[in-house]
Design a protein around this nucleic acid. Structure first.
Lengths: 155, 155
DNA sequence: GGCTTACTACTCGGATACTGCTTGTCCGAGTTCAGGGGG
DNA sequence: CCCCCTGAACTCGGACAAGCAGTATCCGAGTAGTAAGCC
């Protein structure tokens, strides 16, 4: 179970978009800031745009800008935008297959294994939803010097 | 991010091993119980054996049996046995690459993005570690009739 | 001089190949059991 | 009658392919800005 690395890219890129301020920034510049593939980062940014986290501006001097402040963007928002909202553990109901399934009556209620895994996953989602990008920005050394570096790198 | 379906197979198989009792059961019978691929289930059982959750008995009338009671097996044990203990979110330290990495001084401390993701993952792991297979067995309808069905299916 | 218009350059957006991991399969090593032969 | 030995069958164990999701890339659609031409 490995999370797509696009999540890491998206998180850092969103933080950079916040540091640079208002105007839209092209995916090429955002990619160069961290030495990433511009085309692939563009793909991730499109998914963020579909999820309503960033706004895309077409045309020359276009790009992407934050759709809302970092305070209103949780880690869960970003993960679901990139990974999709599907559950990691997908119950295939093997309890209804094979000899046990044939010999047993159709089970009632949800699978206990599935329920337990979903409980754990719900804890993960809640922990993600409880953390917002504004908190990460605080943890980072967001001194004016760092912000200036980001602006220089994205100019 | 999709969890390997081997986790689901392993969980149901461990529960079946408990229901049938002491003697070792071959992977072929365990697979037939749920209509699974015997060879592939065998692969998963080997990983459970390496993790010390089951004991493998070679030779005719061999197979696998539980190494310890269900009360002593948590969901985390099973997930880590199948998936491996690696973190789902793997920080590639892109903050040190690209133009921002070149212009900024080497950062001190761990990446804030990585720390936040690990906090969420830790919540998930704790939720997994808090649930034991004995609890799932209780949730299941483990009436004598069901147990008899499992024994018949594995005979 | 001001306005309109066509052009150019630049951006996003989606369709298209490639790679690594999960999934699935196969055959060999090792062990137990059974049967036959000898003491 | 009891013991030993040989063989066979069955199991785990690891090495070997196939399928799919994630990864990476490229080219087309659309738009803002610009410059030239016209009134």
């Amino acid at each position: 179970m490995r999370m797509a690395k696009g999540v890491e890219w998206a998180l850092h890129t969103l933080l950079n978009l916040d540091m640079i301020g208002g105007g839209p920034v092209g995916s090429a510049q955002l990619a160069e800031a961290h030495g990433l593939s511009a085309s692939y980062l563009n793909k991730q940014l499109q998914q963020l745009a579909r999820a309503g986290l960033v706004v895309s501006v077409p045309g020359p001097r276009g790009g992407f800008r934050l759709a809302r402040p970092l305070e209103a963007i949780s880690l869960l928002d970003v993960v679901e935008a990139i990974e999709g909202g599907a559950e990691a553990f997908q119950c295939t109901e093997i309890r209804c297959s094979g000899r046990i399934g044939e010999l047993s009556p159709p089970p009632t209620g949800t699978c206990a294994v599935n329920a337990a895994m979903r409980r754990a996953e719900e804890a993960w989602r809640q922990a993600l939803a409880a953390q917002h990008l504004s908190g990460i920005r605080t943890e980072l050394d967001s001194s004016p010097m760092v912000r200036q570096v980001v602006r220089t790198a994205l100019s």
